[in-house]
Nucleic acid binder design. Structure first.
Lengths: 216, 216
DNA sequence: CGCCCCGTTGAAGATGATCAAATCTTGTGG
DNA sequence: CCACAAGATTTGATCATCTTCAACGGGGCG
């Protein structure tokens, strides 16, 4: 929706940022002065409790906005690079300016906020009401959905710990659910950092609450 | 931020809606043609699974927007009146028109979306990582925060079932946590449908993970 | 008065957490 | 190229929290 000549003017307002693996570029609670758009890589967003408990609130990939979630107490989450990340940074104070120049941007941001809200509510259902296996099935499907090419085998460049902190589980439970789904023939784990969804339909059924008879 | 003469023009675009107790006025999965602003009462938003499991994704009160959360599959949640509710309905298709006429509205909507996103992420932490007691403490404090007058004793016009479905617990666990907090001297339950926060500071400590020694 | 719904409390059970250890992967240095 | 160390993953055994099942008390409304 944004043409090439727009892109030049847009570039004037954007600050390009390269972030290396495991580096945080946005911190929970800090004044929300900027927001970001991912151009390359994957980032994870999370919140921490004083005692170290962690909840990953989402993952961001190219095209996603980061930093829309903010209240009086600043950014709602910390954002950290998963591998090398490239992004654009905008000033919130210039948001008005930006929106006046790029009316399309307004729609894009609102649409992004809407679908992020919808995703957040879906995640509430996951965290509040789904079993561990349902959670993992839901996660794998949504991860595929956000992959550009929706093939059966996809990269999964995050650790079990990250998945656990996203799903409100422990790494052990996540691992057990992986093996459970594998034994049920719904997925395969060809290599570390990769998953194959063998039976997406059945997986979707599991994600929505259907029981699986074998190896249940 | 919206003046009286603006209000008249705004009224032309808004459709006033009265909803009675337990009536749904927005349904999960339906095309997101409208969005709403609450003017009176309380509404609850929730998602359902095929087998009946329910997750309340939020509560709305006067001034809140409803229906911002929407994706390709329509509204993210169902909205239902808790008691009598009065609201304004806008067409999403006229959103552009609306925003052109009321630039302040734009800021308001973006700010609302931002803080809703922040609240959603906070709720993810609640659902994914907090214990039952921490969840209830968090809920009581946030409920007070959204009450107009922040007195110690406040109305709580929702059932235990609603609280349970909001916190990802069962009514029994919610009830037990109420009793636990009462015995710990942090809250009082003067009458059905009312709570008194006796020790907001300690309650906040509990919500953030501090243990309580007596009656723990 | 009696019914129904809501809330509370008790006891047993299940899911996921915790603790522990073995295996595999990855990266590093000899 | 191989040995080794550090971290990630898997699996097993036990434990705790929350759920489930059950029963009881109270208030509102017909």
């Amino acid at each position: 929706v944004i043409g090439p000549e727009d892109f030049v003017r847009l570039s004037a307002l954007a600050f390009r940022l390269d972030v290396s693996d495991r580096q945080a570029f946005m911190t929970e609670g800090e004044p929300a002065e900027h927001f970001f758009t991912m151009t390359q890589g994957v980032a994870k967003l999370f919140k921490l409790m004083p005692d170290g408990r962690r909840q990953i609130t989402g993952f961001a990939r190219p095209g996603d906005f980061i930093g829309l979630a903010a209240g009086v107490s600043g950014y709602a989450s910390t954002a950290e690079a998963v591998g090398a990340v490239r992004l654009c940074r905008f000033n919130r104070s210039q948001l008005r300016l930006l929106l006046d120049d790029f009316p399309q941007m307004e729609e894009a941001i609102l649409a992004a906020a809407s679908s992020e809200l919808a995703a957040a509510q879906a995640q509430m259902m996951v965290l509040g009401r789904k079993t561990s296996r349902e959670r993992l099935a839901t996660f794998l499907l949504s991860w595929r959905g956000s992959e550009s090419q929706e093939t059966a085998t996809m990269p999964l460049p995050i650790t079990r710990q990250d998945i656990a902190d996203y799903l409100g589980l422990t790494i052990e439970t996540v691992s057990r659910c992986f093996t459970g789904l594998r034994h049920a023939g719904l997925i395969a784990l060809p290599a570390p950092g990769e998953v194959t969804l063998l039976e997406p339909t059945q997986l979707a059924a599991v994600a929505e609450g259907a029981a699986i008879c074998p190896a249940d």
